[in-house]
Simulated scan of single mutants.
Amino acid sequence: MKFRQISAAERTATMFPLQAYAFVPSPWPAGDAEANSERMKFFESTVSLVAEEEGQTLAAVAAFRMRQNVRGRLHDMAGVASVSSHPSARRRGLVRELLNRLLRQMRDEGCAVSALYPFRAGFYARFGFVGIPRYRTAAFAPEGLGHLLRAELPGEVSWLPMSEGFDAWDGLQRRHLLTHRHGFAVFDDVRAAEFRDDKYWVAVARSGGEVVGAVRYRIKSYGGDLVADHLLCANPLGRALLLQFFARHVDQVSRVVVKVSTDEVPELWGTDIEVITEGKVDRPSHGGPMVRVLDMEALDGTAVGPGAITVEIPDDELAGGVWRLESADGALKVSKGTAAPSARVSVGGFSALLYGVLDPVEVVTRGLGEVPPEAVATLGAMFPREMPYLVADF
């Protein structure tokens, strides 16, 4: 068995057949391979690993180079994707070996954290990943926002094809949301460039010349659904401008379906609005995202609450060890621990605390660690609950 990193140009002949068989309807049209080959310029910065035997690719994994906000601190992030294997080579440990190699390499190249969308969460939990919230969808008739048609808002919305609105849409994410939203992540410029030519409309909300909101969308049919991507807003005015834009589609579409974060409350968008807000997680097509820490010392400077504690993270090649965690004026200081640890948590358990999705008691009840009562208060104060919002889909 041979394990190696391949170039973007090699992906079409090595990874594409496995990915296509795993994730898209098949058999696929003959032109798909050619179209995929043309896309490879957008994968030049992607780290792609394959397992080969007698010249045949049997398994593959990849990582996109990304940036993510974790409690206010920006980190290089490995977005794991393209995990696939030949049907006859499954359950041979090839994906496990490739993932271990990939995570190790991405950590060595400076990635402090990693994220992915699982086909089965239990499989990736063995690699130290822990779940975070999946976005919600809100579905409503545009007449439910009729009150906004009478509102005079200090701003305007531009309706553009994605090729023209990309810079505003992408810029809002990089300049504002990435720096302000816990859990928010963006691709590097190489990978993100492919979205410029997506066959989407994009509505861009501006106030005082500043982009305060953006949403890309498609209209499925006259009298059908307007299906939107994430409702990206810098502030409440940006949200109001975009919702007002949706309201203007009354008598054209029957429903608006838009992705929203877990802290949005669509039922409060209007007095008489009828809305279905749904969060769907199933296997294998709608997995909730998962995250993990790759480098503990890179977490220096993370915004945390008061406290100091020594914890042990056992049995993890990348983040394992005994660590002293201290809050200095609200900023985390991480160093190698020398005293006996006050708590023992898995890398998944610590990642859940860091990302704010579980409190220390839940770490224990989920079987992710041993946290004595006297350590619960300290860890809870240092890592208060804070729901991350991961928009990027990869």
Rank of each mutant, 00 (worst) to 15 (best):
I6Q: 11
F16K: 00
P17D: 10
A22N: 04
P27Y: 05
K41Y: 02
E52M: 15
G55K: 13
R73H: 07
A78C: 06
A81L: 10
V83P: 02
S84E: 09
A89G: 06
A89L: 03
R92W: 06
G93S: 15
L99H: 12
Q105E: 07
C111Q: 04
A121P: 10
A125Y: 14
F129G: 01
I132D: 04
P133A: 00
T137E: 11
H147S: 06
L149H: 05
E156P: 00
F166T: 07
L178Y: 03
E194D: 08
D197P: 00
D197N: 12
K199D: 13
V202A: 01
A203K: 00
G209Q: 12
G213C: 01
G224L: 08
V227M: 07
D229M: 06
L232V: 02
R239N: 04
R248A: 14
H249L: 10
S254K: 14
K259C: 05
G270Q: 12
T271F: 04
I276D: 14
V281N: 09
L294H: 03
E312Q: 14
D316W: 04
L318N: 06
A319T: 11
S335V: 10
T338A: 10
L358P: 04
E370D: 15
P373F: 00
T378M: 04
A381Y: 03
L390Q: 11
F394S: 13
